[in-house]
Simulated assay, not measured.
Amino acid sequence: MDDAVRLESLTKTYGSGDNAVSALRDVELSFPRGGFTAIMGPSGSGKSTLLQCAAGLDRPTSGRVFIDGQDISALNETQLTELRRASTGFIFQSFNLLPSLTAEQNVGLPMRLAGHKPPRGAVREALAQVGLEHKAGSRPSQLSGGQQQRVAIARALVTRPAVLFADEPTGALDLTTGRELLSTLRELAGPGEGDGQVTTTIVMVTHDPNVAAYADRVLFLADGGLVGELQRPTAEAVAARMTYLAVSS
């Protein structure tokens, strides 16, 4: 299978009866291995719900989600948690680092919480992937905002996930730092180099055309459905499409 994530007839409805709100409507979508995909749409279009369902953080009302070839729709909560730990990583807008721990300890924390001792080499390798191996002993207060977000990326990468999900990862960063972070993500996407390296697939939600332009393609949502996509996007083309969606909605 060439898809890292596949969505089949994905529907998510909140509430019931007259109060029901459809966040996603029968979405059919796939994310190829090694691809870098940005998801955009007006407020309330369903992009964050799609990301959460695709990552296994929320269950759809109907339809199926496949991660790394496995149908997660039939998994119980314990099985789903184990699959997320093994196959996915998640980057949030907020860094969510523990201030009392070093960068190295923050990166290894999810593995410790799962009852596993993180291999020292794996933690150092994840920090090296984001250019912070020299900051392993630093605490968050000793790091810039961009460095903290890169530690958060290393934490998501330490288990070598098949898919890296990102929800507005540059939202808390200034323009220059955000560009540096996006360049890091751009370098991470694609097949791994060398023996034992995994293919990294990135799925990112953003509202910024300049951020979306770092991706291989941009998917556009409106009213809970897929309404278009751009391959090899430019910031200008993305902005024009978003303006069209705003006017037509």
Rank of each mutant, 00 (worst) to 15 (best):
L83A: 12
V123D: 04
Q105F: 09
L143C: 07
T176L: 11
T159M: 13
S45G: 10
S249M: 10
S73R: 02
R112F: 06
Q70C: 07
D26W: 08
V203W: 01
S138L: 14
F92I: 07
D3R: 10
L83W: 05
L24W: 02
V205E: 05
T11G: 05
S9C: 11
A23L: 06
E236S: 12
T200P: 04
F36I: 00
E125Y: 13
P140Q: 02
G192S: 09
E104P: 03
V218T: 15
G146Q: 07
P161V: 01
C53T: 07
P118T: 13
K47A: 06
S48V: 05
R124H: 15
G146N: 08
P140V: 00
L51R: 04
L143S: 07
T88I: 00
A74E: 13
S30R: 14
P99L: 11
P209W: 09
V227E: 11
L226Y: 12
G15Q: 09
T13R: 13
Q79M: 04
Q52F: 13
Y14I: 11
N76Q: 09
A189R: 07
A126Q: 05
E82V: 10
Q231M: 11
F31A: 03
G35Q: 13
A55E: 02
L80T: 05
A213Y: 01
A122I: 04
A222G: 11
Q70R: 14
G44W: 01
A222R: 15
L185V: 02
H116L: 14
L245K: 08
F31K: 01
L226Q: 12
L75H: 09
A172F: 03
T49S: 09
G56F: 00
V218D: 03
Q197T: 12
N96G: 08
S30W: 07
V130G: 00
N106K: 08
D208N: 15
G63F: 05
I39M: 09
F220R: 03
L51G: 05
R139S: 06
M242R: 08
D167Y: 03
S48F: 04
L10F: 10
S183Y: 08
P140R: 00
P140A: 02
K117L: 12
A222T: 12
I202H: 00
K135T: 13
T61N: 10
G192W: 02
V198D: 00
V211W: 01
A239E: 14
Q148V: 05
D71Q: 07
T49G: 01
L10K: 10
M242L: 15
E28S: 12
M204S: 01
D208W: 02
P161D: 04
V227D: 08
T102L: 12
R139V: 07
A114V: 12
R84C: 03
F92R: 06
L50S: 02
D223P: 04
G108P: 11
I72T: 12
R25Q: 13
A172M: 08
D3Y: 10
L97G: 11
P191N: 10
F66K: 03
L24P: 04
V247E: 15
V151N: 03
G224W: 00
G228W: 11
I91E: 00
T201P: 00
R186W: 02
A154H: 03
R64D: 10
A213F: 00
A215P: 02
T184R: 06
V203M: 12
P42F: 06
S87H: 14
A4V: 02
G225P: 02
L7Y: 08
G44M: 04
L132Y: 01
A128D: 15
